[in-house]
């Protein structure tokens, strides 16, 4: 049981690392939002699942945190994306291709 929980924790931490790597490597803000949001959301969920297995007494609060993250993470990134779009931030195009917008 402990091993399964630890693997969940490790997977979650790895996903968070991928999210950070994503915002470091991606070429423009929209792609960074994509990489950052998805990976960090599942990362937190994995860590919550792992802790829930280790400490069954904490699960009500863990469920509350999970629901909260599942709601705020996409809303926050959509709000950011819309703000950048309205402020006129362009979408990155691969080099050699004409910007279409």
């Amino acid at each position: 049981m402990r091993l399964v929980a630890d693997l969940f924790l490790l997977a979650g931490a790895l996903l968070c690392l991928l999210a950070a790597l994503g915002i470091l490597r991606m070429p423009d803000v929209y792609n960074r939002i994509q990489a950052g949001t998805k990976a960090s959301t599942l990362g937190v969920l994995c860590i919550l699942a792992g802790i829930g297995l280790l400490q069954p007494a904490w699960w009500p609060k863990l469920v509350a945190i999970a629901g909260f993250i599942l709601f705020t993470s996409p809303v926050g990134s959509s709000t950011l994306a819309r703000a950048f779009y309205r402020a006129g931030v362009k979408v990155w195009q691969p080099p050699g291709k004409e910007a279409s917008r």
Partner: peptide, 24 residues
């Protein structure tokens, strides 16, 4: 879908050539 999307993002982020063709 969430799990799938994470494999997808992981593949793109880790691959050295960044295989992305973004469009609105």
């Amino acid at each position: 879908q969430l799990a799938l999307s994470n494999f997808d993002v992981a593949r793109r982020v880790v691959s050295p050539t960044l295989p992305i063709h973004p469009e609105l």
